[in-house]
């Protein structure tokens, strides 16, 4: 009986001592933190995507508190997050436009009504490591003829924390509803195909080929050849052709969609069902 009592007593005493030590330590080693830091952390989405350029949400909150970072850098949190952060810091925030990622490639592999293969053409069969970066390192820069085409091994998909990217018919595609615009996928793309665009814009140039038209045509049925039809039809003069590739100036674009209708390669849209009236 005494044996049990000793055991219980020793363990109880041990627990009590450590409990006291912990209690004292929590007082002695108490670190004073600004209560605003916790509030800022609460506003942020906590996904640690790194889109703001700081290591995680905590890092960004810290930088905002110190006044080193601007409010509204968090693309994932969007406007609501920026407003709440501004309220905590006692300043006014500018409106943050929601941005989403765009994969600038339309070479979805398919078959047209005549049974002819469409989309980006293969140079040959690639049997190497299933990784975009690795594929661009082999002689001949990977399996595609087009040097600007999406390789479709999904380095960007692996990066996305929001499950917004998927490989559709061999090309990475962004789900605009899920995408929060953190752009961590852009860093993973060895061909720099992913750029931010404003959410809801259906008129986008989904091709990055700056090669000559004849070269582009050889590699893909859906590549921009710089024909300039979109530039001609645009009533606002928002489209320019630079290095055989159309670019849209969104400060001038009204989103009328005429360019999307006239493009012979059907690459000026991410949403094929888009109509200007809707």
């Amino acid at each position: 009986m005494t044996e049990i009592l000793i055991a219980v007593g020793v363990l109880g005493a041990l627990g009590l001592v450590f409990g006291l030590v912990l209690a004292i330590a929590s007082k002695v080693f108490y670190v004073e933190t600004d209560p605003r830091l916790d509030q800022l952390n609460e506003c942020l989405p906590g996904a640690n995507c790194g889109g703001c350029g700081y290591p995680g949400c905590g890092g960004y909150a810290d930088a905002v508190l110190k006044g080193e970072a601007a409010i509204g850098l968090c693309a994932s949190g969007g406007d609501e997050c920026a407003q709440r952060m501004a309220q905590i810091m006692g300043v006014k925030a500018e409106k943050v436009a929601r941005k989403v990622a765009l994969v600038r490639c339309s070479g979805y592999k398919g078959v047209d009504e005549n049974g002819k293969a469409t989309g980006a053409k293969q140079k040959g069969e690639y049997e190497g490591i299933k990784d975009c970066l690795a594929a661009t390192k082999v002689a001949g820069r990977g399996p595609l003829i087009c040097k600007f085409g999406c390789l479709g091994f999904g380095n960007c998909v692996a990066q996305c924390k929001y499950d917004a990217l998927s490989i559709v018919d061999g090309i990475a595609k962004v789900d605009q509803e899920k995408c929060v615009g953190c752009m961590s996928c852009a860093a993973a793309c060895p061909r720099n195909l992913i750029v931010p665009v404003e959410y809801g814009k259906h008129v986008v140039i989904a091709c990055a080929s700056t090669a000559k038209g004849s070269v582009t045509i050889r590699g893909c049925s859906a590549g921009c050849i710089g024909c300039g039809l979109c530039k001609k039809i645009c009533p606002n003069g928002a489209i320019t052709i630079d290095q055989n590739l159309a670019t849209i100036d969104y400060s001038k674009c009204s989103g009328c969609g005429l360019c999307a209708n006239v493009c012979p390669k059907h690459l000026i849209t991410v949403n094929k069902a888009y109509s200007p009236e809707a």
């Binding site: 409990g19 330590a25 929590s26 080693f29 108490y30």
Partner: peptide, 12 residues
Amino acid sequence: SIVQVVEMFLKK
């Protein structure tokens, strides 16, 4: 307990 104390100590 040691890990807890060490954590607090390091933080400070």
